[in-house]
Design a binder for these strands. Structure first.
Ligand SMILES: [Zn+2]
Ligand SMILES: [Zn+2]
Ligand SMILES: [Zn+2]
Ligand SMILES: [Zn+2]
Lengths: 131, 131
DNA sequence: AATTATTTGTTATATTATAACATTATGTAA
DNA sequence: TTACATAATGTTATAATATAACAAATAATT
């Protein structure tokens, strides 16, 4: 039996909710919001989140313990992610920059370790908050 | 009254313990280990950790919720950090690469947002685990 | 239909982190 | 040096994030 390719009901519910949001969502706030759709327990949300991250439909913003939908169709399925985060309004945007992703994907330091994945988070003030 | 510059007792205890460790440490494992030195509560550890991160003596590995001592004397005080993480043995090393840090510190994408801080985590298999 | 792997539901619990408030220590300045 | 302000600490309780364990249901494979 192979892993399903389509999304299961719970995964779809969680994904729909995250995609509608303009900001990163926390697991328990998702849980609260999808209770009316039959999802009752944290694990149901976390399992859906895990899978959605795995297949690259969403990403986890590690410094915020929050999740955003992938806006980048070219995204290398959750293997190479970069975000810009405003430290004032907490606005998060996925950085989509070919040069950057090439640079990082090919990065190799003296350790000789070859990386197959990275996550980068930039912090600063967004245009609105800089004023 | 200005913030102290030297480390307080708790901060020193926590820093000493982290510096002695060869691997990233979690807050509660630090707490357990420094109890004999009079630190009794999570908050005492978290407050020390916060300050130590702020002044760049340690860094937080966001994807692991763990803390490592800064091994990089050139480190721009916790504003520009990069790590390589082995997904098998969980070994973590601070990446110290001038080209990389220059590239990222100067990075600007189309959003026009100017970043003053970043954190990058590379994942892969270390030499030992690749075998 | 029997087999197997996968997904789901459910309860309980582990882990990580902060709120709130009282107390003590330390620097500043009249 | 005494008042004042700010900073650091201690302590208890609680919030927020995440997983363990196991039984039940579902779906692909033989
Ligand atoms: Zn993406
Ligand atoms: Zn902003
Ligand atoms: Zn460092
Ligand atoms: Zn390894």
């Amino acid at each position: 039996m192979q892993k399903q390719e389509h999304l299961t009901k719970n995964q779809q519910i969680v994904l729909d909710f995250i995609e509608k949001s303009s900001e990163p969502l926390k697991a328990y706030s998702i849980l609260f919001s999808v209770k009316k759709q039959g999802i009752k327990a944290p694990l149901q949300v976390y399992r859906a989140l895990d899978r959605l991250v795995e297949i690259g439909k969403i990403h986890k913003i590690e410094s915020r313990n929050a999740f955003v939908a992938c806006k980048n169709s070219n995204c290398q399925v959750s293997k190479a992610t970069a975000f810009s985060i405003c430290e004032s309004c907490e606005d998060v945007t996925e950085v989509s920059n070919l040069k950057l992703s090439k640079y990082l994907s090919n990065f190799a330091d003296k350790s000789g370790m070859k990386y197959n994945k990275y996550n980068l988070e930039f912090f600063g003030l967004c245009k609105k908050c800089k004023k």
